[in-house]
Design a protein around this nucleic acid. Structure first.
Length: 484
RNA sequence: GGCCCGUUGGUCAAGAGGUUAAGACGCGGCCCUCUCACGGCUGAAACAAGGGUUCGAUUCCCUUACGGGUCACCA
């Protein structure tokens, strides 16, 4: 079979990119690209009530940021357009009528009230109500008469009376259901619009989609889809149902419940590449143990066989770790360029060399938003207590700290060239002369300079960055505190 | 409730009848070291339960339990 693989991403414009949807898009893209196929974007905007201003732009922007470049879509065209569902509305009725003529569908004039009461009467023991096929028995004349009279109608798919329907799913395997379980679902609504399920089948067929990739919540309705393809005499696509991305063991990830969207993660300082890499591994794993993948590498190694059946919980901790990995692996210039805005904002007016701080940060940073808290002390020495001077492992206490700081002042004052090497040599020499451990001198200095229990860099690095004047000022402050 | 699907450490997950049941995150310890981090080493931690089948089941079958999905003129 060398039909070119075509997958489609068919999001509703909701105004944000849900992580689960993004993962679906990623897999759709990878399934196509790993086989040299095409990835199509189709906007499903038929839910007029939910239209959000600028929502389609979010979709375009996300695909562009993540590198999931589509081959056809509303913005770039293609030979199977239009790619916006609301622009395809004229065509579905004809397809529905074709099915009616074939005896695979029928008109239904039942009122909503009648359907409601049907449900209630069926609800006795179970909350399940199938349409009772009240209108299936209508003769052609009766139907025509009602149509002529302008009665509102829907068109329903006629399910087989007996037997079973089976289909194959790439990840879940063969699934068979009793046709008796299937409801005569509505294809065309009374307002003349198609239902989602119907539009999907028609669109996917017309757009020549070969692999339908979607969430596992569609598993139950897939038999109906298959029957629809059969009714038309169309070839059904390959189905790839994906397990959900969960917030915890019981709930799917959901924006409504406060879970983060793609944009939220980006705003919180996560790298797009890391997000893509992480979600690729939520429900899929390669044949080896590799975890760090660029999109390009994913395209090369992605194998549909690595998809898993069970839901996976989104773990922000692992994403955070992975984000740190990407930051560490980044070329320094790129890292600096990306970190600079936050650094500049946090250290405004200090005249501090941001590049030096960035260099210290690269190995320690996990997300961009951690920057302010990590570098704040450079701008202003925080209030701190002298207990920070006591560090068991460094073998320091207030007394030693005071001695060390007082000894450090004159040697540092005497330094003509203020640079890391000079500061290092001087302080190490001082410790040796005082016959104390390096830590007993350096820990107090580091503490005096940062006022923090931990800092991105030690005494020498901090002194270099802060400059001679500020370094001495902070040490004096420490001395004063230790004396007081 | 009917139907469908799922269940390997806290999390992501390999494994497809015979393994000391990988690896990663997180957590603990050690080393490195001017703190933290990085890096290196290391530890604790799992086959939901019960029946089969088999010489042998995490792996195959059945049942149970638990969880999820679905049963709209919503997508």
């Amino acid at each position: 079979m060398d039909r070119c693989i075509r997958t489609r991403f068919a999001p509703s414009p909701t105004g944000y990119m849900h992580i689960g949807n993004l993962r679906t898009a990623l897999y759709e893209y990878l399934i196509a690209k790993s086989q040299g196929g095409k990835f199509i974007l189709r906007i499903e905007d038929t839910d007029q009530g939910r239209l959000v201003e600028g929502a389609t732009d979010v979709i375009y922007k996300t695909l562009e940021m993540t590198g999931l470049k589509h081959d056809e879509g509303p913005d770039i065209g293609g030979e199977y357009g239009p790619y916006v569902q609301s622009e395809r509305m004229g065509m579905y009725m004809d397809y529905a009528k074709e099915l009616v003529e074939k005896g695979e569908a029928y008109y239904c004039f039942c009122t909503k009230e009648r359907l409601e009461s049907l449900k209630e009467s069926n609800a006795e023991g179970a909350a399940f109500a199938k349409y009772d096929r009240h209108c299936l028995g209508l003769s052609a004349e009766e139907v025509q008469a009602k149509l002529d009279a302008g009665e509102p109608f829907v068109i329903r798919q006629k399910m087989p009376d007996s037997g079973t329907t089976a289909f194959h799913d790439v990840v879940y395997g063969d699934i068979t259901v009793e046709n008796a379980e299937l409801d005569d679902q509505i294809l065309m609504k009374a307002d003349g619009f198609p239902t989602y399920n119907f539009a999907n089948v028609v669109d996917d067929h017309l757009m020549n989609i070969t692999h339908v990739v979607r969430g596992s919540e569609y598993l139950s309705s897939t038999p109906k889809y298959n029957l629809l393809y059969q009714a038309f005499g169309w070839e059904a696509p390959v189905y790839v149902h994906l397990p959900a991305v969960m917030r915890d063991a019981h709930h799917k990830l959901s924006k409504r419940h406060g879970d983060k969207s793609f944009e939220d993660l980006v705003n919180e300082g996560y790298l797009v590449e890391a997000i893509v890499n992480y979600i690729a591994l939520l429900g899929w794993s390669p044949s080896d143990n590799t975890e760090i993948f660029s999109l390009k590498e994913l395209e090369e190694t992605f194998d549909i066989a690595g998809l898993s059946k069970s839901p996976s919980i989104f773990d922000i901790k692992k994403l955070t770790w992975m984000n740190g990995e990407y930051m560490k692996a980044m070329d320094f210039e790129k890292f600096f360029a990306l970190a600079e805005p936050k650094l500049a904002a946090a250290l405004e007016g200090t005249g501090i060399d941001l590049r030096k701080i960035a260099a210290l940060l690269q190995k320690r940073l996990e997300t961009w938003n951690d920057i302010p808290a990590m570098v704040g002390f450079f701008k202003e020495l925080p209030e701190y207590g002298t207990e920070l001077y006591t560090h068991k492992k460094m073998k320091t206490n207030d007394e030693i700290a005071l001695t060390s700081l007082e000894a450090a002042v004159p040697v540092l004052e005497g330094l003509a060239d203020w640079n890391e090497t000079a500061i290092h040599d001087t302080l190490i020499a001082l410790a040796k002369k005082m016959e104390i451990k390096n830590g007993q001198l350096l820990w107090p200095v580091r503490t005096a300079l940062s006022g923090e229990p931990t800092s991105p860099g030690g005494a020498i690095e901090l002194a270099d960055i802060l400059g001679k004047e500020e370094t001495l000022r902070r040490i004096q402050k420490g001395i004063a505190m230790l004396k007081g």
